[in-house]
């Protein structure tokens, strides 16, 4: 198992290296000279421009710039924000907990919707509950997240006045208020992956229900409820959990628009604001961090899969 884990980690390294090259290369797509943007009012002064270029190593050859950038990124230094003049890593660390809270809540909501519906759909395969659940899932996949958010604000905040339409209160400051400000965005975010989780659950349950141990359990005279919930679901959850971990990466992407709509000061708002302010180091930093998180989640998913599935442990 240790060998397998090492080999799996070994596979990640080239992926991350290539990603770093791609993200570094983004800079080259940018129209215009970054030194000009940074110089602002002083852009007419060649001396200032030369100084900025020297400080940011923009006057060095590209490979050298890349190696310097990567070396610093490895030490946790993602450069500084052109706009707020603060280290990108600090900005990301400030915003990450907000998005993690949102993502965590969204994941719980997605599981609460997706897993029971998937079980229902598998148990009633081909009959009307299955058809209905599949239709709901397809509608969920086809709904643009940000539109769902706007519609919820319209219904719940504007018309019913139940929840605040925007804003954010940190969890440890006032848990109740925090919950009130995040439950709607978390639902919107969760909706996006609940449909995917439902499809995974359905497939896994159908597979589990066709196994011999389920037939044995039925033959023993166990009630259908016990067979479905205890025997089949427990085994079906293994692939669902692992695939769910991978979906967490999708949550980070969904958070971009959701946070924008509910004006939640998280990770997604950070990248959008950075895009508008042409604060490119922040954009690069956020993309790199999201990529690393996604790659690590995929690794985590594989490890969980191995841990909960003893048959694979010695393979």
């Amino acid at each position: 198992m240790a060998v397998w884990l090492l080999r799996r980690i070994g596979q990640i390294i080239p992926t991350l290296l290539i990603l770093s090259v791609l993200i570094f290369a983004l800079q080259q797509l940018m129209p215009g000279d970054p030194a000009l943007i940074l110089a602002g009012e002083e852009r007419g002064d060649p001396q200032v421009l030369a100084q900025i270029r020297a400080e940011l190593f923009l006057d060095r050859p590209l490979p050298e710039q890349y190696v310097r950038w990567l070396w610093r990124a490895l030490q946790g230094d993602l450069g500084f924000s052109w706009r707020i003049r603060e280290p990108v890593a600090v900005l990301i660390l400030q915003k990450l907990p907000v998005t993690l809270q949102l993502g965590g809540m969204a994941f719980v909501i997605a599981c609460c919707i997706g897993v029971p519906l998937g079980v229902l759909s598998a148990v009633y395969k081909g009959r009307w509950p299955d058809v209905l659940v599949n239709a709901v899932a397809l509608a969920g996949i086809s709904t643009p997240n940000f539109w769902l958010g706007i519609m919820l604000i319209l219904l719940v905040s504007v018309n019913l006045g139940w929840l605040p339409p925007s804003g954010y209160v940190p969890l440890f400051e006032d848990p109740w208020q925090s919950l009130k400000t995040t439950i709607m965005p978390a639902f919107v975010l969760g909706n996006a992956i609940s449909a995917v989780l439902m499809r995974h659950t359905r497939a896994a349950m159908l597979n589990a229900l066709s196994q011999d141990y389920v037939r044995t359990a039925r033959a023993k005279g166990l009630g259908e409820r016990v067979v479905v919930l205890k025997h089949a679901l427990r085994n079906a959850l293994v692939p669902v959990v692992t695939l769910g971990a991978i979906e967490l990466g999708r949550l980070l992407a969904g958070a971009v628009l959701t946070e924008q709509i509910f004006t939640i000061p998280g990770f997604g708002k950070l990248i959008v604001d950075a895009v508008f302010n042409r604060d490119y180091p922040v954009v690069q930093g956020v993309v790199m961090v999201v990529a690393v998180i996604t790659v690590l989640l995929a690794l985590l998913a594989d490890v969980i899969y191995l841990l909960v599935n003893p048959r694979l442990r010695h393979a």
């Binding site: 080239p14 992926t15 991350l16 290539i18 990603l19 791609l22 993200i23 983004l26 800079q27 797509l29 940018m30 129209p31 990466g249 999708r250 980070l252 992407a253 969904g254 971009v256 628009l257 990248i271 959008v272 950075a274 895009v275 042409r278 490119y280 954009v283 690069q284 956020v286 993309v287 999201v290 990529a291 996604t294 790659v295 995929a298």
Partner: peptide, 24 residues
């Protein structure tokens, strides 16, 4: 293969936003 895998590691919308941001 590696480049494709690396690109798939970044969530779709984030990569699209980053590219669009740099392209203008």
């Amino acid at each position: 293969g590696r480049v494709a895998d690396a690109m798939l590691a970044v969530p779709f919308l984030i990569l699209a936003i980053a590219l669009a941001a740099f392209l203008g």
